[in-house]
Simulated assay, not measured.
Amino acid sequence: MAIDISKEARKQAITSIERYFRENMDEPIGNLAAGALLGFFLEEVGPLVYNQAVTDVQDRLQARVMEVDLEVHEDEFQYWRKFDKKR
């Protein structure tokens, strides 16, 4: 599954990569090279991050499903108990 990002997000990511190179590397990186680097990371590393996010969501949902019975549990056969309390 290809990871697509919006044009605006791509533009911001490229700007961020350019800034990172300006501030942390010996040589700056151009706009085209930053775009290519972003494409590489989206294709090569992006699926790793995406898959971990899916796993995290599955774990979170599973935990919530395990709690559903506690949140919505209703005791059975309660009709007569309300009358027994009055006596």
Rank of each mutant, 00 (worst) to 15 (best):
L61C: 04
G39K: 05
E76R: 08
L32P: 09
D59L: 14
R60L: 11
G39S: 09
I14W: 05
L32C: 03
S6F: 14
Q58W: 14
Y50C: 00
V68C: 00
V65Y: 10
E67V: 07
D59I: 06
R10D: 08
D84G: 00
D56V: 02
T15L: 11
V54G: 04
A34K: 12
D75Q: 01
V54W: 05
L48K: 11
H73V: 06
G39R: 07
K85T: 01
N24D: 03
I5F: 06
F41S: 06
D59G: 05
E43M: 10
A2M: 05
E8T: 02
A2K: 14
G35F: 14
R64P: 01
I29P: 07
M25C: 13
K85I: 01
E71I: 06
D4P: 03
Y50T: 08
A36S: 12
L70H: 06
Q52L: 14
F41V: 02
A36G: 09
I3Q: 05
E76G: 01
Q78P: 05
R60G: 05
L38M: 12
D75L: 09
A63K: 15
Y79R: 01
V72T: 06
E43F: 15
E44W: 13
F21K: 01
E71Y: 09
E8I: 03
N24Q: 09
F40G: 01
A36E: 14
L42K: 04
F21V: 00
E71K: 03
N51V: 11
K7T: 12
A53R: 15
E44S: 13
R60E: 10
P28I: 15
V45E: 01
R10T: 15
Q52Y: 10
N51E: 14
E74L: 12
F21P: 06
V49I: 15
Y20M: 08
I17Q: 02
P28L: 03
G46V: 05
A2P: 13
V54D: 11
K82L: 01
D59M: 12
V68G: 00
V68N: 02
G46F: 15
F83K: 09
R22V: 15
A34I: 13
A13E: 08
K85C: 00
K82T: 12
E74V: 12
F77G: 00
K82Y: 14
A13W: 06
Y79C: 00
E71H: 05
D69I: 07
Q58M: 12
I17H: 06
V72L: 04
T55D: 13
A63T: 14
E18G: 04
E74D: 04
L70I: 02
E67P: 08
V57G: 02
Q12P: 09
Q62S: 11
L61K: 15
K11C: 05
E8M: 10
D26C: 02
I3W: 12
G46L: 07
E18T: 15
M25K: 00
I17R: 04
I14V: 12
V65F: 04
Y79N: 02
R64K: 04
Y79S: 01
I29R: 14
A2H: 14
G46K: 13
K85Y: 05
F83V: 07
V65H: 08
V49W: 08
E76S: 04
L37H: 09
R81P: 02
F83P: 09
W80V: 00
D59Y: 05
D84A: 01
I17Y: 06
M66G: 05
